[in-house]
Write a protein that binds this DNA or RNA. Structure first.
Length: 227
DNA sequence: GCGACAG
DNA sequence: ATCTTGTCGC
């Protein structure tokens, strides 16, 4: 899928009205997927870079599945086109899990996007799984900072609509943005973010996925230096 | 002096 | 994102 196809697909997805999903089961089965890059040096945003994608599935705090794939990022990073760079790798990693999670966590925006369909929404729709995005900062949405304690939140608005929410996941750390994505609202995104963070800033599934992807990359760096 | 539009 | 140095804003 090239950039033009992604643009068209995102516009189509943004106009859909999928049924809303709400967390009802306990413990929740939450999956997360990430991509990490490896060439060495500073600045990783180019095309044809070696990349490692990992996906994990947790039931509550229990890790029940994990996969790591080695691949290549076809496109460089372009704001608002993250799906072109990371979509294929992330989709392959999640599909390799071979199971359907209740919800999928991705380090990307959802409705907070110029076409109202960032990578988190795009991938959820593509895989037919409710999804939420978790990022350090919003893409286009704006909002006042939340309170200083764990659980404090504040709305992130785009053209008057709440597309994401600042969430203080732990007292004394910078807040994270919880993004409404495929079949989810900012409220649900914030709830899932808080249920997956206890004492730490980053949600457990995302931490585990990152750890595994970096581990695979660093292992490969030793075996094939200069790659 | 160089940026603040996800990763 | 990744690597790193400094701790702060037009």
């Amino acid at each position: 899928m090239d950039a033009d196809a992604v643009l068209a697909e995102q516009q189509r997805l943004a106009a859909l009205q999928p049924s809303a999903w709400y967390p009802e089961r306990t413990p929740l089965e939450v999956a997360a997927a990430v991509v990490t890059y490896g060439c060495g040096g500073q600045g990783h945003s180019g095309a044809d870079e070696p990349a490692w994608a990992s996906a994990v599935l947790l039931r509550g705090s229990q890790l029940i599945a994990a996969r790591v794939l080695e691949g290549v990022a076809r496109a460089g990073y372009v704001p608002a086109l993250l799906a072109v760079r990371e979509g294929p790798l992330l989709a392959a990693a999640v599909e390799s899990l071979g199971t359907r999670p209740d919800v999928l966590l991705l380090a990307a925006a959802g409705r907070d996007h110029p076409r109202r369909a960032g990578l988190a929404l795009h991938l959820g729709a593509m895989l037919d799984v409710p999804s939420i995005g978790v990022t350090d900062r919003p893409l286009l949405a704006r909002g006042a900072q939340p309170g200083a304690h764990r659980g404090d939140t504040s709305p992130l608005l785009l053209h008057g609509a709440e597309v994401a929410r600042w969430v203080r996941t732990a007292t004394g750390v910078r807040p994270l943005a919880a993004h409404a994505a495929w079949r989810t609202t900012a409220t649900v995104a914030a709830t899932v973010l808080l249920t997956t963070t206890s004492g730490v800033r980053t949600p457990q599934p995302l931490r585990e996925a990152r750890r595994l992807a970096r581990e695979a990359r660093d292992r490969r760096r030793v075996e094939r230096p200069g790659w």
